[in-house]
């Protein structure tokens, strides 16, 4: 992309998102270093100063300082840091005398890069799947129902009368899974069904969008998709009149 076009897009993205908190945090950090040994990346990298949480926000502050005028090499460096050297656990913030929320600023940098089309490929394809099918693995509704059916049939030989109730209105618990289970680990669905059956729980599984409880779009800062996914689950629970939504382990 043309650098000038990009800088304009970057600043337009940042303008409504860099508020009083972020500006203050970037300014008041006294570089006291108390966050360093709270970070598992820092400790695991033999105390590499590059891994100090306070050092990792330099990409965001540089982008703001340069008014978005950054080249591909800089974007790549920022990408490596915010995806591979911080998992936004917020432990550093718990020890920062000012309570500077570094994870928030890393999340903002991830969202900024995503807005410029930069994010890990696996997450990009998961987000595409969310949009097309409502779940991260791209499982169609037909396949999902088929999986539930054969899971149920297979277990009937083990436990008499075991059912996986689909779209049962009025059930107390609406159970949701990680879409990987439907694709690769259906035995996990079976195990839960056994527990629910033995416990005598009133439960159900939704057939429509909302049955995948993962929210991988959150990791790239794609809050619009994140919101849609949560709304899907709540919409199914409301339709079915479920009192609780249970999510897989």
């Amino acid at each position: 992309m043309e650098p000038s076009t990009r800088s304009k897009a970057i600043m337009e993205f940042l303008k409504p998102r860099v508020g009083a908190r972020v500006k203050s945090w970037l300014e008041i950090c006294t570089k006291c270093g108390q966050c360093a040994d709270t970070c598992h990346f820092y400790l695991a990298a033999d105390r590499d100063p590059k891994m100090i949480p306070a050092a990792k926000v330099k990409y965001l502050s540089e982008i703001i300082r340069r008014k978005g005028e950054v080249d591909d090499e800089f974007i790549q460096k920022a990408y490596d840091c915010i995806y591979h050297e911080c998992n936004m656990c917020r432990r550093c913030t718990q020890f920062c005398p000012f309570g500077i929320n570094i994870a928030d600023m890393i999340a903002l940098t991830r969202a900024l890069l995503f807005s410029q089309g930069v994010c890990p490929e696996a997450l990009r394809s998961a987000i595409k799947n969310y949009h097309e099918t409502g779940n991260q693995m791209g499982v169609s509704e037909e396949d999902w129902l088929d999986t539930l059916t054969w899971c149920e049939e297979e277990m009937e030989s083990e436990i008499v009368g075991l059912k996986i109730p689909v779209d049962k209105v009025g059930a107390e618990i609406m159970y949701t899974i990680n879409a990987r289970e439907a694709k690769f680990y259906p035995q996990d669905i079976q195990e839960v069904a056994k527990i629910m059956h033995v416990a005598g729980a009133s439960w159900t599984v939704p057939s429509k969008r909302g049955w995948d409880d993962t929210n991988l779009s959150m990791f790239v800062g794609d809050l619009k998709t994140s919101r849609t996914l949560v709304e899907n689950t709540f919409a199914r629970a409301t339709e079915l009149g479920a009192k609780k939504v249970a999510i897989t382990e």
């Binding site: 203050s24 945090w25 300014e27 008041i28 006294t30 913030t93 000012f98 309570g99 500077i100 929320n101």
Partner: peptide
């Protein structure tokens, strides 16, 4: 400026946490 912004930064994080 952390002389005053300390209070705001701490408050912001206290609310979030």
């Amino acid at each position: 400026s952390h002389a005053v912004l300390f209070f705001f930064s701490r408050a912001a994080t206290a609310v979030e946490f």
